[in-house]
């Protein structure tokens, strides 16, 4: 039922800095609800973020929290997990943070299968700097740096992570809050690298430029484009146009990196190394 907000939030730091109707509070709530329902110990859970609107979330969350540099949350988190594999390490990142400046780190964390849960607050725009296009901005959408419409091709982040070897990948939206919470829960339970593409809305810098005048318009826009993963594969390319699948997209368990490294340590201690 109702979330014990005082347990999971630094209530003294609220209200938050996000604009009215911003989806990031919805996704943040989904994360703490998933943590609550999964029963993770708040003292053994670390939240790491990069730079951008999304990356302000950890400041409001009552855990050990680390707000790093632009794009670099994943390698900071990698160091934490390597240093203390007992910790649950959650990364909160945005689409600019994860897919542009930090894209290299995202694919390598997926390749390594290090036990991080990465939740991308994907509002397909740079909100903090007031509305420049990101690698996730749909073609034709307007942004302050795409005044004639987005002319570049966007990424499909889940496909990118899949191509990099990601073994748990899910997607949901700020419209589908219960579903989103469940996706994050499954990601938290997964031992290796888990990635959740959480589509969020930026009414201020995306909506206003793209005829989605209210937060509700934006949520409905997310709803109308989302297709359950189970139906996605049966659709024709024409039917898929402009839409995206939601649900668990990849779930192929594989041994987590720090576990593998534990074996390296045993081997090193026994052999004394070859170098």
């Amino acid at each position: 039922m109702a979330l014990p907000l005082e347990k999971y939030l630094r209530v003294g730091k609220l209200p938050h800095i996000w604009c009215p109707g911003c989806g990031h509070g919805i996704v943040t709530q989904a994360i703490i609800r998933a943590i609550d329902e999964t029963g993770l110990d708040t003292e053994e859970t670390v939240i790491v973020s990069g730079i951008g609107c999304s990356s302000r979330a950890p400041g409001y969350m009552n855990f050990d929290t680390l707000h790093t540099t632009h794009g670099r949350a994943i390698p900071f988190a990698t160091g934490i997990k390597m240093a203390n594999p007992e910790l649950n390490v959650i990364v909160i990142t945005g689409d600019g943070d994860a897919a542009a400046i930090g894209g290299n780190h995202l694919i390598h964390a997926a390749r390594r299968n290090i036990g991080l849960t990465v939740v991308c607050f994907n509002n397909n725009i740079y909100g903090m700097t007031s509305g420049q296009y990101s690698p996730l901005t749909p073609r034709g959408s307007y942004a302050s740096t795409a005044p004639y419409g987005m002319f570049e091709r966007p990424f499909d982040l889940c496909e990118l992570v899949k191509g990099a070897g990601g073994s748990f990948i899910a997607r949901s939206t700020a419209y589908h809050t219960r579903h989103l919470t469940n996706m994050i829960k499954e990601a938290l339970k997964y031992e290796g690298f888990s990635f959740v593409d959480a589509l969020s809305q930026c009414p201020t810098y995306y909506g206003r430029r793209n005829r989605l005048r209210t937060p509700l318009d934006m949520l409905n826009w997310l709803r109308d484009r989302a297709v359950p993963a189970s139906s996605w594969d049966k659709m024709t390319p024409e039917e898929k146009d402009g839409k995206f699948p939601i649900g668990i997209l990849v779930n192929q368990p594989s041994t987590e990196l720090t576990k593998v490294y534990g074996e390296v340590m045993v081997k090193a201690a026994a052999e004394g190394g070859r170098g």
């Binding site: 039922m1 109702a2 979330l3 907000l5 939030l9 609220l14 209200p15 938050h16 996000w18 009215p20 109707g21 911003c22 989806g23 990031h24 509070g25 919805i26 709530q29 989904a30 609800r33 700020a174 809050t177 219960r178 919470t181 937060p215 949520l219």
Partner: peptide, 22 residues
């Protein structure tokens, strides 16, 4: 009806729905 749609869609953590017994 306690569906929590308001609470879960609130971007501001500003609305909570509790069972009276709680």
């Amino acid at each position: 009806i306690g569906c929590l749609l308001c609470e879960m869609h609130c971007p501001d953590f500003a609305i909570t729905v509790k069972r009276r017994a709680e």
